[in-house]
C-alpha cells in the first residue's frame, strides 16, 4: 500500500477496498453544543466519517470548522465542508490550516448554494474562487506545502480532499466531464447528490467508468431516505438540481399513511444493495437529513455493519 495522503479513517477504509459508508450532520442554529453531540452520538460507529455542512442552503449555523472540531473530541471523524460563497482565498487557506490543526483530516470542497435560498438573501457573496479552484488550492497546500502564492507553509495541512458531483443537473452529457475536471484538480473522493433516478445514475457511472475516472477517485453514491410523500414532492419541485421521478414518489405514497418512512428506508436499502455491486461505486454517502437517530437502524438494514476498524 502506497503512502496515505491524510491518514484519515475514511481514506484508510477506501484504500483498503472496503465499501465506505459516510453520514451527515448539520451544525445547530446556535451554540447548542449538547444537541450537536447528541446528534453525532447516533452516528458514532455506524459510519466512517460524518459530513459537517457549511451554512447549508445559505442558512447561518455554527461554523462547520467548530462543529467538526467538536466531533473530533467526541471520537467521530468529520468530513469538514467548505463553500466558496462565504469566504475569500485568505480566509479559506487560514481555515484549512486551522481545521487541520484541530484534528480535521477530510474536507469537502463546494461552491455553495446561492445566498438567495438562505436566511440572509441580502448578503454579498464572495466566490473569489470556485469549487474546482478550491480543490486545487487544498491539494497544492497539502502536496507542495505552499500557499496559493507559492510561499512556504510551516507544516502543511494533510487533508483527504473531497468534492461533490451532481449527475442530475444539466447538461447531463457534461456532468461527467465536470467530474473529471474535479479529479484533475485533485479530488480524492466524490460524494454525489442524492440519487432517486437510478437509470440516470447507472448511465452516469458507466460514463465515469469508461473514462477511467473510477480508477483515479473514489465515488460515493448519495442516498437520502424519503421520510414522507411531502418531502419527495418538495425535493422534486423546490430543490435545485434534484431529480425525483414520479414513480419513486408514487411508491412511497402507495405504502399508505404511517408507512411512508418505512418504505423510504426500504427503497434506500435497495439502492444501497445495488450500489454495492455497481461498477465504480466505492461507497455510499447517507444524508439522513434531521434523521440522525435513524442512522443505526438504516445502516443495519442496509447491511453495512460492522464498520471496519482501521489502525
Amino acid at each position: 500500500m502506497s503512502e496515505l495522503k491524510s491518514g484519515s479513517n475514511l481514506e484508510k477504509v477506501l484504500k483498503a477496498g472496503h465499501f465506505a459508508f459516510t453520514g451527515e450532520c448539520g451544525p445547530p442554529k446556535g451554540a447548542n453544543v449538547e444537541h450537536l453531540k447528541e446528534k453525532c452520538s447516533h452516528l458514532k460507529g455506524y459510519v466512517d466519517a460524518v459530513n459537517v455542512t457549511d451554512n447549508q442552503t445559505a442558512v447561518v449555523r455554527m461554523s462547520s470548522m467548530a462543529a467538526s472540531a467538536i466531533m473530533v473530541t467526541e471520537g467521530v471523524e468529520p468530513n469538514y465542508q467548505m463553500v466558496c460563497r462565504d469566504r475569500n482565498r485568505l480566509a479559506m487557506m487560514g481555515d484549512v490550516i486551522g481545521a487541520y490543526s484541530l484534528g480535521i483530516r477530510n474536507m469537502l470542497c463546494l461552491s455553495g448554494d446561492h445566498q438567495k435560498f438562505g436566511n440572509h438573501p441580502e448578503s454579498k457573496n464572495v466566490f473569489d474562487i470556485d469549487s474546482i479552484q478550491l480543490i486545487a488550492m487544498v491539494k497544492k497546500m497539502r502536496d507542495e506545502g505552499v500557499f496559493l502564492n507559492g510561499e512556504e507553509l510551516d507544516v502543511a495541512p494533510k487533508m483527504f480532499i473531497g468534492a461533490a458531483s451532481n449527475p442530475f443537473a444539466d447538461p447531463f452529457e457534461f456532468r461527467v466531464h465536470r467530474l473529471a475536471t474535479k479529479i484533475d484538480a485533485g479530488a480524492d473522493f466524490i460524494q454525489t447528490q442524492c440519487i432517486y433516478n437510478m437509470d440516470k445514475f447507472r448511465k452516469f457511472m458507466k460514463m465515469a467508468v469508461d473514462m477511467g475516472l473510477t480508477e483515479k477517485c473514489y465515488i460515493l453514491a448519495g442516498v437520502t431516505p424519503m421520510k414522507s410523500v411531502g418531502m419527495g414532492k418538495y425535493m422534486a419541485k423546490r430543490v435545485p438540481g434534484m431529480d425525483v421521478p414520479d414513480e419513486v414518489i408514487k411508491r412511497i405514497a402507495d405504502a399508505g399513511k404511517g408507512n411512508y418512512a418505512k418504505e423510504g428506508i426500504k427503497f434506500a436499502c435497495e439502492q444501497i444493495e445495488e450500489f454495492k455491486e455497481m461498477e465504480g461505486v466505492a461507497g455510499v454517502h447517507l444524508m439522513a437529513i434531521e434523521w440522525e437517530e435513524r442512522v443505526p437502524e438504516i445502516s443495519k438494514a442496509a447491511g453495512v455493519l460492522p464498520r471496519p476498524v482501521m489502525d
Binding site: 461552491s111 438567495k116 457573496n125 470556485d130 479552484q133 447538461p171 438540481g241
Partner: peptide
C-alpha cells in the same frame, strides 16, 4: 450567479439558473 470559472454548478436545470 456564482461567477464560476468552472461551471455549470449542480443547480443548473433546463438551461436556467437555480436562483
Amino acid at each position: 450567479s456564482k461567477s464560476l470559472i468552472h461551471g455549470p454548478c449542480g443547480g443548473s436545470a433546463n438551461s436556467v439558473c437555480e436562483i
